[in-house]
C-alpha cells in the first residue's frame, strides 16, 4: 500500500431507496470521493454473499450494501 492508496469501493444499492438517495446526492451536488461505484439492484435481498466475495477477489477494497 503506497501513500496514494485509492481504495475501490463497490456499492450495491437498492433501487427503491439507496439508489434514489445516491441520485439525490447528485441533485444536491453533494461531493464524495469518486472511488465509490454504485451497482443498482432491485432490492438488497438480491445481493448474494457470493458477489461480495467475488468483488474482494477481483480487487475491491470495500463493499457497501445499502438499502
Amino acid at each position: 500500500m503506497n501513500e496514494t492508496f485509492e481504495p475501490q469501493i463497490v456499492a450495491y444499492c437498492c433501487n427503491y431507496c439507496a439508489y434514489a438517495a445516491a441520485d439525490l446526492a447528485g441533485s444536491m451536488r453533494l461531493s464524495y470521493p469518486s472511488n465509490v461505484k454504485v451497482i443498482q439492484v432491485p432490492c438488497t435481498g438480491r445481493v448474494d454473499i457470493l458477489y461480495l466475495l467475488r468483488a474482494i477477489e477481483d480487487g475491491a477494497d470495500g463493499i457497501y450494501v445499502a438499502g
Binding site: V10, V41, G45, D58, A60
Partner: peptide, 27 residues
Amino acid sequence: VSECPGKAISLQHFTDEQLLAKTSALF
C-alpha cells in the same frame, strides 16, 4: 435467488451472470 443453496433460482435481468460481470468489470 440470493439464498437458494442449489443456485436453482435466477432473477431475470439481475442474474448472477449479469451482476458478477458488472462487478468484475469494475476491476
